[in-house]
Amino acid sequence: MNKKLEKKSQIQMFETISVLFIFFILIGIGAIFYVRVYKSNLDITKYGYSQSKSVAIAQRAMFLPELQCSKNKITTDNCIDLLKLEAAISVINSNEIHYYDLLEFGEINLTQVYPSSASAPKWAVYSRKIERPASSFLTFVPISLYDPAADTYGYGVLSIETQSK
């Protein structure tokens, strides 16, 4: 009788332990599934942030006072002063840390489209690339090119590539 009672209580405890064990396995499966879904949502959010950051950097590049056309303190949007451009490239290359804060990782190039010539003039305005970026966005902006010496306007394309780790 005693042995029967002992076995009964042991079986009861074993039942409780096995129920708990299966319960925690189910919780673990649920947690793994939840973490996977959460991670994919985070990846989507991260991609969205990278895109909006890329747009912000492109805007900053387009509106840099170092490049923007101005006449008597009045600035012209979507216009680059070619005489300032050459000086600006030198200033940007000499102050890498300062411009990294504004433009981060990426590359900014300017290509003249009009007046067209056999060798389309191209300027490398800014370059700080990483070898294996986690994401990369390329924005093309049509821009007016002003030559103050000749007082003539041309047309070009500003390509802004932004990268993130």
């Binding site: 005489l83 050459e86 600006a88 010496a149």
Partner: peptide, 18 residues
């Protein structure tokens, strides 16, 4: 300071090109 350096370069370019 940085923008002034750009204008210094522009003034020199204008001097050379006029």
């Amino acid at each position: 300071r940085l923008v002034t350096q750009v204008y210094q370069g522009k003034a020199r370019n204008l001097m050379a090109n006029t």
